[in-house]
Design a protein around this nucleic acid. Sequence first.
DNA 1: GACGCTGGATTGGTCAACCAATCTGTCGCG
DNA 2: CGCGACAGATTGGTTGACCAATCCAGCGTC
Lengths: 228, 228
Amino acid sequence: MQVATAPQDVLAHLRQWLDTAGAARLPPERTLAERLGTSRGEVRKALAVLEAEGRVWRHVGKGTFATLGATTGAPATRADPVAELARATSPPEAMEARLILEPEIARRAALRATAVQVAELRRLSAAMRAAASWPDYEELDFRFHELIADAAGNRLLLEVERLVNGVRRAVVWGHLARRPQGPSPDYHSFDEHDAIVDAIATRDRRGAFEAMRRHLDSTARALEEDAE
Amino acid sequence: MQVATAPQDVLAHLRQWLDTAGAARLPPERTLAERLGTSRGEVRKALAVLEAEGRVWRHVGKGTFATLGATTGAPATRADPVAELARATSPPEAMEARLILEPEIARRAALRATAVQVAELRRLSAAMRAAASWPDYEELDFRFHELIADAAGNRLLLEVERLVNGVRRAVVWGHLARRPQGPSPDYHSFDEHDAIVDAIATRDRRGAFEAMRRHLDSTARALEEDAE
DNA sequence: GACGCTGGATTGGTCAACCAATCTGTCGCG
DNA sequence: CGCGACAGATTGGTTGACCAATCCAGCGTC
């Protein structure tokens, strides 16, 4: 089960992926479409733009690949700030920023989230439990936190969240990508996500704050243990 | 009926049409496809690129139109993201983001600031008291808060602070610019700034947090009162 | 004649099925 | 054991039909 992504964000999403992820090969169009919760046509339209810019290279049967080296493209090759920042940020720094930001965002989301947004959060949480691979889970998790920031009803906070979480994803990338199968059924984040959604749904502001803090704490702890 | 056109030339063909033809409206996709001896899909792919560049504008039922006015040169001429965000952000939103972020930043600055940074904060605070105009004060205030974020020792947090405060400055800008003279000698922020620096200098983490919160609170209150 | 409604025609958008190029694992031959 | 041929799976590309928004000519009403 998937939740829709705004059509115009597909291009921006792929742009960021190109700037941050280290892999030369992109996932297949069909996989991208499902992962982003959109149609293959939307993905192809975005890829067509990137191809016209010379940033990707496609070939039937082989796949889609990021253009190596200098993009030398016509457009003024503006570097993605997220990518640049990611190279200058350590995992603990990214985690610290999240811990400052996201509990407060969750608190406001509990106050301002609409029923539609809560329902989407529920769908995303359920989809994460069913994720077949870590990249799938990663993408859903990103959108989960992004949607909470959206529900907080502050455009500036949403943008800050995107920046922080984009950097976080870029920094941690590769950790999880190579694992063969997806998260185990008892992965700690599943229940934590549900707890966050429950608190938001019941307008429990303090509960949302605490649930988010616990979630990020245990994620940070898992990240530390993983490094040993 | 026409002879087939090389697929990649469709884009070039349309580009030339845009540059030469005076008409604002392009022929329908189906007509273009037949005229160029290619498929509608090819035409749509080319148009998608032009649309992403902002050179054409499409709407179902109406047609495809060349963007009026200056084509603004080559790429999609994206405005400064901060300026764009500022237009979509209200003063209370900007203030809310600051209130979430900056007290926590101050707390970390109290832990990690170097002596040089503290000295620089003192200089900035003194300079603000002597500011002859509101724009001067504004600039010094911006650098004051930026330096605290720098002292927090987290590159990502520094960048977030720049984003938030840049938006805040753009949003509030104009409020103060037109006043003839600078802040009065008893402007509330002066002492509040000093309190923040003192707490940081003495490594009083909680004190720095509280001092920053009080400063932003009173600034927010002043902004509200000013609007009445 | 002016205004408004209505039905069909036009137009860009979307989607699912299908196609061809490529990759990959397997089997058989030497 | 090595190697090549074959079959199925994978992947980007293409096509056609269908959909919804819009436009417009024609007609009716006042």
